[in-house]
Amino acid sequence: MIEIRGLEKFFGNLQVLKGVDLDVRKGEVLSIIGASGSGKSTLLYCINGLEPIQKGSIKVDGTDVHAKSTNINHLRQKMGMVFQQWNSFPHLTALENVALAPKIVKGMSKAQARDIAAKQLEHVGLGDKLDAYPSALSGGQQQRLAIARALAMEPTYMLFDEATSALDPELVGEVLDAMRLLAQEGMTMICVTHEMGFARDVSDRVAFVHEGIIEEIDTPTEIFGAPKSDLLKKFLSNIR
């Protein structure tokens, strides 16, 4: 379970998160929507400990992410993260990309790491690209590679930060399919997304973030069918 209490985050004088409270249960799929610049990415970075926080707390399975005593490298193994930019390691093949962290972080043997990497690449539909370098893969394939790379650490939670925003439109589908599959398998997911169809169909809950606050959070039916806040209504009418 992820528990966020009174989270505040500043970049210098700029307050980006202004008191976020949020619980994400195991097995839940939560989508986060909201205008660009509202603090969605920053929220994910804070959850993963990639950005320090100034106030409040974030606990992952009871462990405080930002406590000094926390072994953050260890805790991060529980949280896979997929970014807008896929960040494939260009000097490694697809298989090596995925096998690297299991090998050096988890200390797996080379053979073990390769097995798990092959399995995860198979899973996202890249079973025929094991020896391909990222430069030979499309954006959609590289993003699925990034998903496989995160999954190879066998995380409990997956965080997606606009995983399809940088893709050409015709490549969005394959990545969303991989995410759907993951959701069906029961993965706990937090997805920052602009794909409203995905948010509606796949999520258990949808959170609407506005200027560093969770303005409204509810089931997709309520959020898209009967939005309460005016800001959310305006946001939804703008994207339709």
Binding site: N48, Q77, M81, F83, Q85, N87, F89, I104, M153
Partner: peptide, 15 residues
């Protein structure tokens, strides 16, 4: 971004 991706996989600073 590349380095954040690496760290998000659990790699330490030195790794």
């Amino acid at each position: 971004p590349m380095r954040r991706a690496a760290r998000s996989l659990g790699m330490s600073y030195w790794q």
